[in-house]
Design a protein around this nucleic acid. Structure first.
Ligand SMILES: [Mn+2]
Ligand SMILES: [Mn+2]
Ligand SMILES: [Zn+2]
Ligand SMILES: [Zn+2]
Lengths: 152, 152
DNA sequence: CCTTAAAATGAAATTGAATTTCATTTTCAA
DNA sequence: TTGAAAATGAAATTCAATTTCATTTTAAGG
């Protein structure tokens, strides 16, 4: 699942007249092998373990580049942090986010997408993208919350 | 529609041991009479016309207070700007946002809400809030875009 | 294998919105 | 009227995001 993305990257790179560098491939490699939804500091920390010489600025610029090329998606959930996640071609998903433990669950619901299109049509909009995030407590945090209350 | 909110504010204020001040009521008044989705600088500019002595910090703190009390909602759409809008009790709506002219349309779709609950239930989540924003071109921007293309 | 122009890198500086600090003023309950 | 708590406003601080700039690296052409 990595080779495919690396090829995608190489193609985009040459198409745009950019250059292949050791830093870029190291950053891409780390990024693709990490769990999604990480912020720059976290990605930088992981990159640094592979190559301590890489600058924070380069990681910043590379993630921005990956986002522009469609290989990464930038997410800003309600906590205001900027996170990144890999974006395999032709995929899309939305998120369920636990406000207690931070757990993030990804889901894909076709009915949701078609309902969105229906709404957009009603108002004459042509939709290119959307944001759909559900915030609450995950299953285990819901039980814990109940426990706390029952103690009173 | 203002008197109701002003009363709500006064009740909350006394309930929390806070104090009524001229600044707060002026800011609330301006806020409730403006179109929604304004950023702090815009709200501050309007407040300043009513009372040029009010400080930016006080406007900042008051909007934060209104948000905490549930009289305002803070919104951060994809452009990253922080905006505020009045939040009449017991209401809720989602947004359609034009990426060309910035137009914002509000909508309320019961089917969307129940679908969200269905998804949450599937994953064992208890949902308190959500974010649902649709981005694209509004009707008139879609036509303009078509015009541009047809000229080529 | 050279040359060299364009692109990339990394440390440091800058930016700007959000937030905090602190001296002063205002509110309001007693 | 008085005093403690809260609010105000100007200025300072914070901090992630972004830019600057001197230096290094890439890659295409010769
Ligand atoms: Mn995700
Ligand atoms: Mn709205
Ligand atoms: Zn949880
Ligand atoms: Zn438009």
């Amino acid at each position: 699942m990595d080779a495919m993305e690396s090829n995608r990257f190489k193609k985009m790179i040459s198409k745009e007249g950019l250059k292949s560098t050791r830093q870029r491939s190291e950053i891409l490699d780390v990024f693709l092998h990490s769990a999604g939804h990480q912020n720059l500091a976290e990605i930088y920390a992981r990159v640094t373990k592979v190559n301590p010489k890489i600058g924070y600025t380069t990681v910043y610029r590379t993630l921005k580049l990956l986002t522009r090329l469609g290989l990464a998606v930038q997410r800003k959930f309600a906590d205001g942090e900027t996170r990144y996640e890999p974006n395999p071609e032709g995929t899309h998903h939305d998120h369920l986010i636990c406000l207690r433990c931070g757990k993030i669950i990804e889901f894909k619901e076709e009915a949701m997408e078609s309902l969105q299109n229906k709404i957009a049509k009603r108002y004459g909009f042509s939709i290119f993208q959307h944001r759909m995030e559900l915030y609450g407590y995950c299953g285990s945090c819901t039980s814990k919350k109940d426990l706390k209350r029952s103690k009173r």
